[in-house]
Amino acid sequence: MSVMTPVAGRQAVYRLNPVAKVVASAIIGIALVISIDWVSAGVALAIEGVLFLWSGLSPRRFFLRTLAVWIAAPLAGFTILLYGRPSGAVHFQFLFMQVTDGSIELAIATVLRVLAIALPAVVLFVTIDPTDLADGLAQVAKLPARFVLGALAGLRLVSLFLEDWRSLELARRARGVGDSGRIRRLLGQSFALLVLSIRRGSKLATAMEARGFGAPGKRTWARESRLGRGDAALIALGVLVAAAAVSASVITGHWNVIGA
C-alpha cells in the first residue's frame, strides 16, 4: 500500500487532470443526491456501467477497489428496508422494524443510489496521483498554494508513519505489554504516533521554509497543470450522466426530492 504511488497505466484516464475527475464525480453526486428514486439512480448506474470500461482498471482491480461499496450499498438498503419511511401495505413488523411497500421501494432506490454515487467517486480516485492533484488544485482550481503544498508534503510522510507504527507495535511486545488490552494499546500507539508525527512535521516545516516556502513573492510551477480537451470531455460526460438521470426520472414521474 503506497499512497504516493497510485495505480499507474497508459490509458487515457491516467492523463486526465485530477481536477476534472473531481468535478465530474461531483456533478454526478450532486444530481443524484437531490432525489431518492430508483429511476434516476438506475439510469445513472447503467450509463456509468458502460463508462467504467474506460476506467483504466482491470475487472479484478475494479472489483477489489470497489468491494467496500458493493458491501455497503446493500447494507444501507437493508437499514432503509427495516427503518425506512413507512407507506402502503405492511409486510413485516417487529419492535422498531417495519417493512412496507414504501420502504421496499426506498430500499431499492438506496442501493442503486449508493452505487451510482460512490462507484464513480472511488474509480476516479484510484487513478489520481497526489502530486498531480496538488498541482491541479493550486494551478487550475486556484486553491491557496501554501496549503495545498503543505498538505502534499504531509502526505508524503504516510509511508514513514506506517514504519513508525510497525516499530511501535514490536516495541510494545518487547516491553511486556503486548499480550492483552488491545484497545488501550492501540490508543497508546496512536498517541505515540501523533507525537512522532508532529515532531517530524515541525522539522519538515523548517526544511521547507529554508527552501523559500511561504516567502513573499510570486511562486512558479515546475510542472504545468491545465485542463485540456480530454478533461472537458470527462466533465461533459459527468453532465451527460447527471442530465440523463434527472430527465428520465422527472419524465417518468419518479423524481422524489429528499425531505419533501
Partner: peptide, 11 residues
Amino acid sequence: LQDPDSQVVLA
C-alpha cells in the same frame, strides 16, 4: 538539516 527523512518534501 540532520534528519534525512524530515527534509524530503516531494515524492
